[in-house]
Design a protein around this nucleic acid. Structure first.
Lengths: 229, 229
DNA sequence: GAGGTCCGTGACAAGTTTGTGAAAGAAACA
DNA sequence: TGTTTCTTTCACAAACTTGTCACGGACCTC
């Protein structure tokens, strides 16, 4: 489950360079060549970070950023503006209308990665870590293992992805449909109730006599995972 | 309540300048002259943002940042490093060990404020989440929870939506029809008196022996929700 | 203070949502 | 290929919600 970066850049050379480098660095990427496409792609799948060119066809970077901020899903997504301009006024404007950082072209890749990691760590610390700890449970999504007190817990692949998803969004309530999208995949037809069965199995696997259930059922809404207090 | 900024800077002139400017800009400030004092002040009251000099007596800025990140309260507090060095390696190190941004001295105040605002805008809502507080009651519409004094209050879905609606419009009187529209939905046929029953159930759930009823009945008009004084 | 209107609430039946064991395929593995 | 594990669906029970009603009390008007 790689972090997903949306690159919005109309210069072919730079776009390719960015895609190549981010791919190599372990990110999943998507490329939008203009502002409208950027908004479309961002709504199709919420990116974990957006690289946004200042000058764009159709919609300017400023306007794209403003609209992204208005949408609930992307209101907190980190945005790094890429700008050729260098005067201070523009920079401030860039930050003030909702971008989180900016880079002035030409910039160095290592620095861009550093800023990317810094912003991602803030927005979703769990994205960059291989091992996610939640409560007393350790989820190692690289090694596909789950541990508690050093004890391995065996899970089926689907249960694992389900737990992994929950662990990355602790406390948040997901509807069955959202879980199907995130864990099973966007275009798989599976009964919503199937989620219940897997939740049940996950619960059984994580259950411990004394402790309370880390998975909370939110009646008529879905499920949420919360570390045991 | 003003945002609280911790300034960690050992150069007298710059420290004073920062305190003065941030004060003028509407921030509450505290000043630490070395790394140890910084950690002490940060633990006394969690800042909303930290300005951290790279070179410090006793503990370096890097080390201070690292330790701040280890503490639960400050693990997500935005940190802006102030550095005199300008070579790229240092910058990256700075961002990679946990700082959110950096400024190279000498920097411009307007730009520092822009970055400050950008980071705070990101950090603040995450601290407050989508929790509405009304009186002593907390309504978390993201997590579908209601709390008072840390105690969870269980509500059925309809009661929850009802409370949520009230919490978003404190003090306002709603007719039964308005409540049906807002909570049940525009096109649901339900008796107006049903609202009464749910109000009753909500009251029972929120009731506390000593305190007064937060829901006010407005005879022949409807109901209003008011925090308890 | 009589009569009418409005409101609070316990009871309850109907409806909805969730938990779960079992069964039948699918898929992985060896 | 045969075995084992995993996934999906189904069916049913259990748990929980909900809308309505009926009754009694509160309040208002004249």
């Amino acid at each position: 489950m790689k972090p997903y970066v949306l690159i919005v850049e109309d210069e072919d050379a730079l776009a390719t360079l960015l895609e190549y480098n981010f791919g190599k660095e372990g990110f999943e990427t998507a490329l939008a060549m203009d502002g409208e496409e950027a908004l479309l792609l961002a709504s199709e799948r919420t990116p974990d970070l957006i690289l946004l060119d200042w000058m764009l066809p159709k919609l300017s970077g400023v306007e794209v950023c403003r609209r992204l901020r208005r949408r609930k899903e992307t209101s907190k997504t980190p945005v790094i503006m890429l700008t050729a301009r260098s005067d201070e006024t523009d920079r401030i404007t860039g930050l003030d209308f909702g971008a989180d950082d900016y880079m002035i072209k030409p910039f160095s890749m290592p620095e861009l990665f550093a800023r990317t990691r810094a912003l991602m760590r803030r927005a979703k610390p769990s994205l960059l870590e291989d091992i996610i700890r939640i409560g007393d449970i350790e989820v190692d999504s690289q090694a596909f293992r789950v541990k508690r007190d050093g004890e391995l817990i065996h899970l089926g692949p689907t249960e694992f992805r389900l737990l992994d998803h929950f662990a990355r969004h602790p406390g948040r309530v997901f509807s069955r449909e959202q879980l199907l999208d995130a864990v099973w995949g966007r275009d798989v037809y599976v009964e919503a109730r199937t989620v219940d069965v897997h939740i049940g199995r996950l619960r059984k696997a994580l259950k411990r006599p004394g402790k309370s259930d880390p998975i909370r059922t939110v009646r008529s809404a879905g499920y949420a995972f919360e570390g045991v207090e």
